[in-house]
């Protein structure tokens, strides 16, 4: 599945220009992180990818077909969008019903829905909460309920909007498992996030946005080495990376192990 974005601009009816000409393309199954400060246009951009918002100018092509040609409901088969605020997405009485809702809309047969529920509820950790009312779940579980309800539809591309919000260590670990699962099953995962530690642990492809534009995109090594552009987008690299950069280490480090390795190598060089 290939998503091409050509000169995408979006103006809100109030007159604010949220996106000012975005050109990029997403393909393959390497997970992609979209980062940038609040108001950079990340969510507005993501909402264009399944047609929830329509471009004021420019084009979005999904496998060569313009997004204009179909409704969001049609695109939901291919592109799943997990809302930032779970309360905006959940509207049924039980977790099971939430899970069933999407695939039922798509006309997935009953037995396959049941199979998917078994698998997805295990993956998102809600196996024993299936008959709970989503309002009674805690914040973490709610988020996983929304992720699960989209995973149930088995889209080719899945967009996670701020999945780490309010997550504990265990939740982050589970997110990693989900992202890995998507990658291994040839599903593209696009994630909007502010959590840089989470970014460097899970993503190699990074898109940096600021003021409605893409400032740069590329591998995490490339992006986090370019401190000047990062500064412009008000993104701070994870602490361990900054320590390495402050020490002037030649290689960039994203984990304690990498840092120790690079640091000792430099000591030996002296």
């Amino acid at each position: 599945m290939k998503i091409e974005i050509k000169n995408l601009k979006h103006k809100y009816p109030s007159g604010g220009e949220a996106l000012r000409g975005i050109n990029t393309a997403f393909e393959g199954s390497d997970p992609i992180a979209i980062i940038g400060q609040n108001g950079a246009g990340k969510t507005t951009f993501a909402k264009h990818l399944n047609g929830l918002l329509r471009p004021t100018e420019g084009q979005i092509l999904i496998d060569g077909e313009s997004i204009h040609e179909h409704t969001t409901a049609y695109w939901s088969k291919y592109i799943g969008y997990v809302f930032q605020n779970p309360d905006n997405q959940l509207f049924l009485e039980t977790v099971r019903k939430e899970f069933e809702f999407g695939p039922k809309q798509l006309g997935v047969p009953r037995h396959e829905i049941n199979d998917r529920i078994d698998f997805v509820s295990e993956l998102v950790g809600l196996k024993h909460r299936l008959s709970t009312h989503p309002f009674d779940l805690n914040a973490t579980e709610k988020k996983f309920c929304t992720i699960g309800s989209i995973l149930m539809m088995d889209p080719k591309v899945i967009i996670l909007d701020e999945p780490t919000c309010g997550q504990d260590v265990e939740g982050n670990q589970r997110l990693t498992e989900i992202i890995t699962y998507l990658k291994n099953n040839d599903r593209l995962c696009i994630t909007i996030t502010h959590d840089m530690k989470f970014v460097v642990r899970n993503f190699d492809q990074i898109v940096v946005m600021a003021k409605g534009q893409i400032l740069m995109s590329g591998s995490k090594n490339l992006v986090f080495s370019d401190t000047k552009t990062l500064l412009e987008s008000y993104v701070t690299p994870p602490p361990i990376t900054r320590v390495g950069q402050a020490l002037g280490l030649k290689d960039i480090s994203f984990s304690k192990e990498e840092f120790i390795d690079h640091f000792t190598r430099r000591l030996h060089q002296r």
């Binding site: 409704t71 905006n88 539809m153």
Partner: peptide, 15 residues
């Protein structure tokens, strides 16, 4: 409007 968006992105035709 918000819930409609959520429904749409889960395959409900609202138009």
């Amino acid at each position: 409007k918000v819930i409609q968006e959520a429904q749409e992105s889960r395959g409900v035709e609202i138009s």
